[in-house]
Design a protein around this nucleic acid. Sequence first.
RNA 1: GGUCGGGUGGCCGAGUGGCUAGGCAGAGGUCUGCAAAACCUCGUACGGCGGUUCGAAUCCGCUCCCGACCUCCA
Length: 507
Amino acid sequence: MNNELYIYNSFTREREKFEPLHEGHIGLYVCGPTVYSDVHLGNCRTFVSFDIVYRYLTYLGYKVRYVRNITDVGHLEGDIDSDAEDKISKKARLEQLEPMEIVHKYTLGFRDIMHLLNALPPNIEPTATGHIIEQIEMVSKILENGFGYIKNGSVYFDTPKFVKEYGVYGKLSGKQIEELFTETREALKKQDEKNHPSDFAIWIKADERHLMRWPSPWSVGFPGWHLECSAMSTKYLGAQFDIHGGGMDLQFPHHENEIAQNYGACGSMPVRYWMHGNMLLLNGRKMSKTPDPITGKSNSILPLELFTGQNEIFSKAYSPMTMRFFMLQCHYRSTLDLTDAALLAAEKGYRRLMDAYKALQQLQAPANAEAAQLDQEINGLIDQAFEDMNDDFNTPKALSRLFELVATINGIKDGHLPADRVSAATLQRLKEVFQHFIFDIFGLLDEHDGGQDGQTVDGLMQLIINIRKEARERKDWGTSDQIRDALKDLEIQLKDSKEGTSWAKGS
RNA sequence: GGUCGGGUGGCCGAGUGGCUAGGCAGAGGUCUGCAAAACCUCGUACGGCGGUUCGAAUCCGCUCCCGACCUCCA
């Protein structure tokens, strides 16, 4: 079995063998949300994708420092020189709230959603406003190194200078430098403070209208959007670290500018492996908060709208774990289209996987069990599932192996497959691997597990099942079916098999 | 317009020169008091037109369609 991990590096556009900078340790930085409104499901997809990356790296035994920022300032709306305004402070004025109130509200909301989706919290969740000093220091360094210039209290990054010195601007997003520079010439008129249209602000002077501003050597103002990630990744992971993740839509300009800033301040490429998750689509189009200019509606759905069913898009409510399973069925670098039929399929598939997991835990190897062909098949599928994960975190492929194993598990359970052809060791391995994949790596939860109340419910259900069993033994089909139908109305399904009756939540 | 990525069976989605994932839905069967669940069997799909090759969904060319990015975006 090949244990080497390969990661598709967006910077080189190649699948590369992963080797950490420091053996056994990994620095992982993921661009987090801007907390000026509720996160939508598209945002969530990226964070779930990287949650699985984090979980798998941890599973492989690496000590991972996972940093995911909260952007609570500096995210501009529109052009700086037109009517630019910070997203946070704009929302604060609209809602008559303090900027920190907005930030706090949506940060808490974001964490709640991540918790519902069972995404592990990062090790560090730094905020931009908490790192103003670090950002000012970085601007100073960039100026010292000659990669920035001051105009009317604002500081801009000098991209032509950067291209001349390092020549990597545009490489990440695959843009030709010449085209990049000529493309936006039309916009030059609106941005007369910049020496060059591709230059970008790293410090922005603010007038009294702005609610969020800080003193700096250049003006009372606020940092540019791209700066926080450079400053905070450098602070917590070092000038160079292993993996930087984010949504594909951040590749340009955000990550391109991040690279420029790090070169400008530290003189080196900050990241060894760039990873970009693809977009979640709704009705075949990118999910986005930005309203459509024609219809005025935004093409997005909030997680809670999906989980509660309170939306006009889908036929019913879909649980967080259904959503998570749905995401697992698609590779993180492919677009994923959210549709009702697809979610319905995911819901059923998720239940089937969890039911098989429970059935597996009940299986016992017979005393005379010996390894045979079936044994090899099981071990082969397990090995392949790990190889799939090692191949750029191919969750859909790994999941397909698990489903092949589900058929094997059910076959043994129902006596269609010879249980004595699976050795005790392989059965034990299968149990452990299922546990690790489903809960530790894929991060799924058993939503039908009642938690604290679970034991009570299990006890009650066993009582009901026993009463029905006695009725069936008397051939009292009326009572038997009454119980079954009444439970069905409560969305509890009884499953009769040779070994007896089990139950599961869900109609 | 420029750049990049796609078009896979009824739906969602892997794969990427020969061994043709998986989930859901559908058909038939086994089991069952009847069902459900589970299991077994079944569908030979890769936008179109050419080309390379013994062989292409997979490589090349052309073409049609879709999406993303091009300084708001996860």
